[in-house]
Write a protein that binds this DNA or RNA. Structure first.
Lengths: 339, 339
DNA sequence: TACAAAATCGAAAACGTTTTCGGTAAAATC
DNA sequence: GATTTTACCGAAAACGTTTTCGATTTTGTA
């Protein structure tokens, strides 16, 4: 009934626990014969090292923590998948927590993960996070920390990101190139760096093309939902009937807008062109299909873990951790919502 | 630099480690005065118990494992969210693994979780899983196991499910009630119980209404994707132009079919009525909006953890675990894809 | 004051592993 | 045959906590 331990094997073989432990780890100071003997018995007894004991002894658990603002979200769940798949390959397990876009929760969860003594932490910040003490705590404890997507530039750790500003510029430029003269922007809340950068890219593109930036054309939402897209579409028709192009912060909202425009007989892209952001798989399914920026979620997850893994290895070898910024490529996916 | 331990506190206060430990846990055999003293010092030194040591000593980690076939999936990510939110409330952490619908992987992952000595396991089976030894291993080790959604009836553990057969019956009956005479069915692979049950519900509804069941109207897919829906829609038009109703195993495929029908000028629901399954949030966004069966993912996750938690508690008290089947209610959500 | 009862504390074992260090026996060298 | 080297093994400490059980002190009772 009880799980078998090193002691059990040792007694069976009439040798010491030490030798058993060493034999299983192929220490050179145990003879090939006893090594074979031990391994065979371990096999037949189905010996599994007690992870708790190993953890205590080695002060590592081969487990990392992952804090994400929202799990039910195509982009983030892709990231999770990327992280888990990569972690599994390297023998790491992933504990997932969801911050619900709340700074308070995020802080508590960092504490929780630290008290559980995970080996490292991956995090995408909540929108509200403006104070970084909890993140610096992680770094001060010498635990590897990697941020991705929603990051804080001021925290000195590795980051995996895309160039939101550049991507937004590309999107807006595409609207301009296809003849749009008055371009609105649906954006996310004020805080997360992504929303800011995408906005700045939008603004820069306008200015570089000699178009005046009109703040009244920028609509800000708190929660990205389908319904917000519908609502903003109605608002645009009412408040700014002259708008002929919209760059939307995220596909889901863009698709909400498209369906609302469809209902009201607004022709896309003839009357209004729309560019989204993310390349959610539904974007190619909707009619008209949505021109958008491809944001590689799975890849981002993979890279985030890879970087964390490097730092975990460095730490094991007592080498210093040098933070690294990894920027993933994005691309414009042209579809039917633009000319 | 080193994290503070019980020993540190004990030395500071000139008392024993035993007393410190007991004070922090409010043992009655340590005076109120020293209890207060210890707690205060623990606070100021920011003492956090070493989880590894606690795990080893208590043989529990307050961590559970979760194996899911696919993370990037609206229903499953909702379930995950339900599980995590509930687990967090009860002080449990969740390690997530993805089986990728592979029996082999699933087996390995069960082993992995057992060797990591999680307190319990939640699982939704891979489509290919037909052998249940790995699951019975978990039960034999005395670890609580709860299956949800994709379950194996033959395994003697708790399960959280919906009545797929009844729900499918309801969906098909609705098509019949609204005048459909020739009803096709798009279904999932042969193995998972859900696909079987939904098919059986479909068939039973036909028979109960005196309609002959025609096997050629049942289309089977391996992977549920948007594209499969498009493809099957084309097939229906070519092979069975007389079909006037379709019950689709899952919303995503149904939406693929709808967009394909839209493109070909097939009127929904006038020419063909469609009922989906899941109540994915996009189902209300598509045009026409999709009539579907509401499948409560978040709720299912919550209930699955709650049941596991009960069993974890029972185990702590050395009480026997009595497997329980929890059936969640589903409902028909009528929208514009049916008359 | 004497004794029993209650309150308070701590020594020590235990959980299972890893790793250091020293010891013995066998092999190699002279 | 004596000495050094090598090969092999094990005792013991350590990781930090929990819990049992006995010891001591204090309080209460007669």
């Amino acid at each position: 009934m009880k799980p078998v331990t090193l002691k059990d094997i040792a007694e069976h073989l009439g040798i010491s626990v030490t030798t058993v432990s060493k034999a299983l780890k192929d220490y050179p100071d145990v003879s090939k014969k006893t090594r074979a003997l031990v391994k065979e018995l371990a096999q037949t007894l189905n010996y599994k090292p007690n992870a708790f004991a190993v953890n205590l002894r080695t002060e590592t658990s081969n487990t990392i923590g992952l804090i994400i603002p929202e799990i039910v979200h195509h982009f983030f769940s892709s990231v999770i998948k990327g992280i888990i798949s990569q972690a599994e390959k390297k023998g790491y397990l992933v504990i997932i927590l969801q911050s619900n876009e709340s700074y308070e929760l995020e802080k508590k969860q960092i504490d929780l993960l630290l008290s559980k003594r995970v080996d490292g932490i991956l995090i995408s910040l909540a929108n509200g996070t403006a104070d970084f003490k909890h993140l610096n705590d992680v770094i001060e404890q010498g635990k590897p920390l990697v941020m991705f997507d929603k990051i804080a530039k001021l925290v000195n750790c590795s980051k995996v990101i895309i160039d939101d500003r550049k991507a937004a510029y590309m999107a807006t430029q595409h609207l301009i190139d296809t003849g749009c003269k008055r371009i609105a922007h649906f954006r996310g809340p004020l805080l997360p760096q992504n929303a800011i950068d995408r906005f700045l890219g939008y603004k820069k593109a306008l200015e570089d093309n000699g178009m005046t930036y009109d703040p009244s054309l920028v609509y800000i939402f708190d929660h990205m939902t389908f319904e917000v897209g519908e609502m903003f579409a109605r608002k645009i028709l009412r408040e700014h009937p002259d708008v002929d192009g919209i760059f939307v912060n995220t596909d889901l909202v863009a698709i909400g807008a498209i369906t609302e425009f469809n209902k009201n007989g607004v022709k896309i892209p003839e009357d209004i062109s729309i560019v989204g952001f993310s390349n959610w798989f539904m974007s190619s399914a909707i009619t008209p299909s949505l021109t958008t920026i491809d944001q590689p979620g799975f890849e981002m997850g993979k890279m985030a873990f890879k970087q964390l893994f490097k730092e975990l290895k460095a730490k094991k070898k007592k080498k210093p951790i040098v933070p690294k910024i990894i920027e993933l490529e994005t691309s414009l996916v042209k579809r039917d919502s633009t000319k």
